Every structure is written in structure tokens, then in C-alpha cells.
Amino acid sequence: MTYKLISNGKTLKGETTTEAVDAATAEKVFKQYANDNGVDGEWTYDDATKTFTVTE
């Protein structure tokens, strides 16, 4: 399945996607992506749209 990340960081804003077997796997990928880009904030997940959002 395709999962989307919306980043509302102070230094990184935008969207990216990943293919993953489940939401937990996608979350690990996205949290590593955010960490690699210096984004640390509040996370939410919408199962209906398969979208994670991180806001700093």
C-alpha cells in the first residue's frame, strides 16, 4: 500500500510517499525520514487516507 507523509516542519515542508506492508512499517520509514531531515514534532495518522502528518 502507498502511505503519505505531510511534513509541516520549521525547515522542511512538503509531502512524500512510501510503499509499505502496513502503517507501522510506513511510520518507521517516515520517522527515520523526518529524523534525517531534522524534523521533530507531533505526529498524527489518518487511516482513511493512509496519511501521516508531522507538525513542528
Score class of each variant (00 low, 15 high):
residue 50 K to Q: 10
residue 38 G to H: 08
residue 53 T to P: 01
residue 22 D to P: 00
residue 43 W to H: 00
residue 31 K to R: 15
residue 21 V to K: 13
residue 34 A to T: 06
residue 48 A to H: 10
residue 42 E to V: 14
residue 5 L to G: 03
residue 10 K to M: 12
residue 4 K to F: 13
residue 41 G to C: 04
residue 44 T to M: 08
residue 9 G to Q: 06
residue 27 E to L: 15
residue 44 T to C: 10
residue 38 G to V: 03
residue 2 T to L: 13
residue 42 E to K: 10
residue 25 T to P: 01
residue 14 G to Q: 13
residue 12 L to C: 12
residue 22 D to H: 03
residue 12 L to M: 11
residue 7 S to F: 15
residue 32 Q to K: 14
residue 55 T to G: 05
residue 44 T to I: 08
residue 1 M to G: 12
residue 44 T to R: 08
residue 45 Y to M: 00
residue 1 M to V: 14
residue 16 T to W: 15
residue 10 K to I: 13
residue 25 T to R: 06
residue 8 N to K: 11
residue 39 V to D: 02
residue 20 A to K: 00
residue 6 I to A: 05
residue 46 D to Y: 04
residue 33 Y to G: 01
residue 10 K to A: 12
residue 40 D to H: 14
residue 13 K to Y: 11
residue 47 D to A: 13
residue 48 A to L: 13
residue 5 L to I: 03
residue 29 V to E: 06
residue 47 D to N: 07
residue 50 K to H: 12
residue 14 G to Y: 14
residue 3 Y to I: 02
residue 35 N to L: 15
residue 7 S to V: 15
residue 37 N to T: 05
residue 15 E to P: 09
residue 55 T to N: 10
residue 9 G to T: 15
residue 41 G to A: 03
residue 46 D to A: 03
residue 39 V to Y: 07
residue 29 V to H: 12
residue 48 A to R: 11
residue 43 W to L: 04
residue 8 N to L: 13
residue 10 K to V: 12
residue 21 V to N: 11
residue 4 K to W: 13
residue 47 D to W: 07
residue 32 Q to T: 07
residue 14 G to A: 12
residue 53 T to I: 09
residue 25 T to V: 06
residue 28 K to A: 13
residue 11 T to A: 11
residue 22 D to Q: 02
residue 36 D to N: 09
residue 13 K to D: 07
residue 4 K to R: 12
residue 25 T to S: 13
residue 37 N to H: 15
residue 21 V to W: 12
residue 11 T to Q: 10
residue 44 T to Q: 09
residue 43 W to F: 05
residue 20 A to G: 03
residue 19 E to W: 15
residue 31 K to Y: 06
residue 11 T to D: 09
residue 21 V to R: 12
residue 53 T to E: 05
residue 56 E to S: 08
residue 12 L to H: 12
residue 45 Y to E: 01
residue 5 L to M: 06
residue 56 E to N: 07
residue 15 E to A: 08
residue 30 F to V: 00
residue 51 T to V: 06
residue 32 Q to V: 07
residue 24 A to M: 10
residue 41 G to L: 04
residue 53 T to A: 05
residue 1 M to Y: 15
